[in-house]
């Protein structure tokens, strides 16, 4: 009797989850299948779940119309540098805020957190002027420096700080007795134990940088320097109309690494958030 109930409950739960999945899965499915459909089939109603005919040439056109491989590389290396930079900055800052008592620490942390409340659109003009003065317009520097020292890094610092606060202080005291200095304790004890939080930071930061849109369109002006989100806007015909199937093929290629990262690192992503006490 009890088993019947639990099977029924389980079936209902799975059914509910399948329904909830539709709004998340359908757009991705539509993007992938539409990338190989002829344009006329893309907006057919009701939509076809599978293409009637497969047109793989759209993927070839993506690389013909734009320096897509170069743009892919741009997005990739920028995201990796931003990820590495943010991991370094946020782990050091998070550790300092969690463990080092210095005058005004709490006030400074509050000020840093306030950075999260300011939308990127508010600071983009002053940033443009600053990078313009530094001769960095139409270079990738703004796309690296803004996230590493801006809002994404603040969020990551918060994650790291929460993690380090939760780390038993006795571990560090034991290390002090064992003869380690502050930085060695950070490097050899705190940081290796912070892997779950660091993984969460890495995934967040990589995704944020990979998807960055506002900053590239403000700071970058030549196709060779474009990143992928910016490049996606360029698949238009002579009249400015979207070449939907090619654009969706490019979008599929753009989403691919993100999907792979998430599928591979799903466990660390969830663990990292669980460790920091944050809820997604």
């Amino acid at each position: 009797m009890k088993t019947d109930m639990s099977i029924r409950m389980r079936t209902m739960l799975y059914g509910l989850m399948c329904v909830l999945l539709i709004p998340f899965v359908f757009p991705t499915w539509w993007m992938v299948t539409s990338s190989v459909k002829p344009i006329s089939d893309i907006f057919a109603f009701p939509p076809d779940l599978l293409p009637r005919t497969y047109d793989w040439s759209t993927y070839q056109r993506v690389f013909e119309l734009q320096p897509f491989a170069q743009q892919y590389w741009n997005s990739g290396y920028i995201a990796l540098l931003v990820t590495a930079g943010t991991m370094i900055v946020s782990s050091l800052a998070g550790y300092a805020f969690a463990r080092i008592r210095f005058p005004g620490a709490d006030a400074i942390f509050m000020v840093v957190l306030l950075g999260l409340l300011i939308p990127a659109e508010v600071t983009i003009v002053p940033l443009f002027q600053m990078f313009n003065q530094w001769g960095m317009i139409n270079t990738h520097w703004p796309l690296i420096l803004v996230p590493v020292f801006g809002a994404p890094s603040v969020f990551s610092t918060f994650i790291m700080r929460q993690f380090f606060i939760a780390l038993p202080i006795e571990l560090e005291e034991a290390a002090r007795v064992d003869g380690l200095g502050r930085f060695t304790i950070f490097r050899k004890i705190a940081l290796p134990l912070a892997k779950p939080a660091l993984s969460a930071v890495a995934i967040f930061t990589f995704l944020h940088s990979w998807n960055l849109f506002l900053e590239p369109i403000v700071f970058i002006s030549t196709p060779q320097m474009f990143t992928l989100p910016q490049a996606l806007t360029q698949f238009t015909d002579a009249y400015g109309g979207a070449m939907w199937n090619i654009q969706l093929a490019a979008a599929t290629l753009t989403a691919l690494p993100v999907l792979i990262v998430f599928i591979v690192a799903q466990k660390q992503f969830v663990e990292g958030l669980a460790h920091t006490g944050l809820k997604g």
Partner: peptide, 20 residues
């Protein structure tokens, strides 16, 4: 003096073994 220069060793209540 810093703990490391006192030539002492300490056993903590929760052992404080390095988990990694």
């Amino acid at each position: 003096l810093d703990p490391k220069d006192r030539d002492i060793a300490m056993v903590f209540q929760n052992y404080a073994l390095y988990p990694h």
